[in-house]
Design a protein around this nucleic acid. Sequence first.
DNA 1: ATTTTATATGAATTACATTCATATAAAATA
DNA 2: TATTTTATATGAATGTAATTCATATAAAAT
Lengths: 303, 303
Amino acid sequence: MKMHIEFRHLRTIRAIHDAGGVARAADLLNITQSALSHQIKGLEEQTGVELFIRKSKPIRLSVAGQRLLKLANKILPEIDALQSEFDDLRAGKSGRLHIAIECHACFEWLFPVLEKFRQKWPDVDIDIKPGLAFEALPALQKENVDLVISSDPEKLSGITFTHLFDYKSVFVASAKHPFSKKKWIEASDFATETLITYPVDRTRLDVFSQLLIPNKIEPAQIRQADLTSIILLLVASDRGVTVLPDWVVSEIKNNSDYTVKPLKKTGVQRGLFAATRTECLDKPFMRNLIDLAGQEAGRLQKD
Amino acid sequence: MKMHIEFRHLRTIRAIHDAGGVARAADLLNITQSALSHQIKGLEEQTGVELFIRKSKPIRLSVAGQRLLKLANKILPEIDALQSEFDDLRAGKSGRLHIAIECHACFEWLFPVLEKFRQKWPDVDIDIKPGLAFEALPALQKENVDLVISSDPEKLSGITFTHLFDYKSVFVASAKHPFSKKKWIEASDFATETLITYPVDRTRLDVFSQLLIPNKIEPAQIRQADLTSIILLLVASDRGVTVLPDWVVSEIKNNSDYTVKPLKKTGVQRGLFAATRTECLDKPFMRNLIDLAGQEAGRLQKD
DNA sequence: ATTTTATATGAATTACATTCATATAAAATA
DNA sequence: TATTTTATATGAATGTAATTCATATAAAAT
């Protein structure tokens, strides 16, 4: 009396209908006729209605039975579809790729990469989570995201950092700016300047982490802007100076509105890494994304 | 390895999600936590994908798990709905009422009855099968129909005939017809007449079964018409004579276009019966239909 | 009426879900 | 950080329910 309707029963109903009888259905399901007979008897007890008309010999579905069959024909394909979705998932054709980017400027090269990726892996669920830019690595461990783009590799259990490419952080100012005569920019130079940055914690900005904080220099003023194009606009109109990755700057290097200088005599070189859960590197789409990211980086550097 | 996804699994997934953890879900389902743990392990083996993220402590659904949950939330209510449909069926609120009528003129009184019935039993699936007018009783036994309206009760195993009402078969002709002077009509009178009948086997027509066949009389001519109103039209314009149940004739009894006479000196009295499978008499809607038919009959006779 | 074919059923068997006892691992707490 | 608490996992034992086997019964076909 505790028994429930189970998929077994739906498969049975469908088989009996398709095969046109219990005995034939039994072959179809690789099961004995007796088993099916017991099964439908149990099902009729459970549902409380007669599912079959037993007066005719290959037994037929009653009205109630037909109703159940209808449901079976609706539900069973859905389960099969789900199973094949799962098969895709296991085969690595589908999956989830939720990305957190610590580096704000990375949008620039990430979008073209994702566009290529999307074409090759249409069933992978792509998303970018800019919200949790900080705390990205814990989120990665907790499987809230699957990929973190970061400049600061850490030793973390279960997390692997894959080197994507190197870039330089370069100083950008208006062409009219007095620093256009300098060969390179020092930390101390910022003390009198208005610095334009992305609106993120300063520890996540190369200018600060690599130059100003170590040298204990505070810019005269800080102004924040969301989009790279806005920052460049502000710089062009001499409202301040900024520091950006060289790949961003490559587009405006030959633009006479701007002057671009290295930071320090040696330049400030940084690496960009893809952080993933180690086991995820087995997934083909994940490896492919990292490959694509490397290729795109190469293309940017050439310009 | 042969295991399939079962409803148990869907209920489990849903419970784990709703309760927010395996342990709490276990209470919810009145089952041990261990059972659920084994269950989801088996399910993961079957599907081949990880359904849960086990890094966090009350375990969460993975992407695949969420997909399964979505399906569970779709499917489980459908099964519940079906079960309550079955409950209605068992309670006698719903069911099938497919009717075969041997007696062609019965449409006349059956339609109003069914209209009343439909209002009271909206979930009963009503249908009239005029096609298998002959062979109606075997169809009843085979559960192809559930009710047969017949004038000829037989002793048949599993079939019960319920008397609905009696009627007389009466002769109808145009008012101008010479027989309008007769007190009653004999079989021999038909030998010179054109008889208009429903287009059915003559054994199912009262004139033949009750009068002409026993007396071995053949009408001069036979003409067939589908609808009672057409038959009456033909009779009014003196294209022939007919024999109809008195309840049909009651409408035109006072119409000066027609003359109505009894058959034979004594009249030809017949009964009308509802044949059903005996077990179907337990169903409340079936009893109610038979009651309604009786009432409607009473109303017709009064006119 | 008889044979054939299809379904039903009781008892035995087997498979498998569940429980129990306990290990393991994450989260909370000190 | 160590410790306690809470949550899940697991192996072995148990119990239940699905399946099989052997056979009875009933409808269809001959």
